[in-house]
Simulated assay, not measured.
Amino acid sequence: MNKLRIFLADDHPIFRSGLRSHLAAQPDMEVVGEASDGAAAVQAVLDLRPDVAVVDVSMPVVSGAKFTEQVRRDCPAVKVLALSAHENQGYVQQMLAAGAAGYVVKRAVAEELVRAIRVVAAGKTYLDPDVAGPLLASRSRALAGGPAAAAELSDREAEVLKQIARGHAVKQIAADLDLGVRTIETYKARGMEKLGLKTRAEVVRYALHRGWLTGG
């Protein structure tokens, strides 16, 4: 069985050691590297190309959001899963906008992290229940009676926005759908304009509201 290759980025060595031990005990996972600051983590991920990079939001040197932006730009196949003590919506939206495929709070049980890793590795989005609820509530209020609720997306626009919400890069979506990058950019722009969305975080919230993101 091919194991999921996991990279850990957290500046607390004891916490990181506990994560490493728990993940190493999973039959379908192996920890291939770790780092205690964001800059070292970026370089290590570029070298190792893991399947999933689990990163603390509050990393020294390079923040979790900046780490995510760089990894998603230079290694789009690597899924980034945010792990944080923060449940504040600002942190969640920042990480989603940067391209994270999931967000788990540190006080969650260890099995929640394991599930989240499997979900994002499968190309889906995972949001901890404690942060997903407020996101859904805020988006539902924004959608109620507004133009986004009545907007009609084409099948292609909907498919592209679903993939964007799942953290897929435009080049990856173009390859998956056998279309040009500029064509995907056009579908993305048109869909977001119809829905009145401006950021990836807003796309993710809309996708959650519509039930597009399954598995988490």
Rank of each mutant, 00 (worst) to 15 (best):
V32S: 03
K106I: 08
L83A: 09
Q93C: 13
G18S: 04
I14T: 15
D28R: 09
V31Q: 01
A101G: 15
V71K: 03
A53D: 03
P27M: 05
P60E: 04
R72A: 08
L96D: 08
L23A: 00
A110N: 09
L23C: 01
K106P: 10
A85V: 14
V62N: 05
A101N: 15
R49C: 07
H86C: 09
K106M: 10
V42R: 00
A100G: 11
L46D: 07
S36Y: 07
R107F: 12
V54S: 01
L113M: 13
D47G: 00
A85E: 07
G102L: 03
P27G: 05
G18E: 05
A25W: 01
L46A: 06
V80H: 01
S36A: 14
A25I: 04
M95D: 08
S63C: 07
A85C: 07
L113D: 06
E87W: 07
E69Q: 15
V104W: 10
L23Y: 00
V104Q: 08
V114R: 09
A77L: 11
E69S: 10
V92F: 12
A40V: 04
V45K: 00
A35C: 05
V114T: 14
P27E: 14
A39F: 08
F15S: 13
V42F: 02
D51E: 03
L83Y: 15
S17P: 05
V52K: 00
K79G: 07
A25L: 07
K79A: 15
M95G: 07
F15H: 08
Y91G: 06
V92H: 10
V104S: 08
A82D: 06
P76K: 06
D28V: 05
A110C: 06
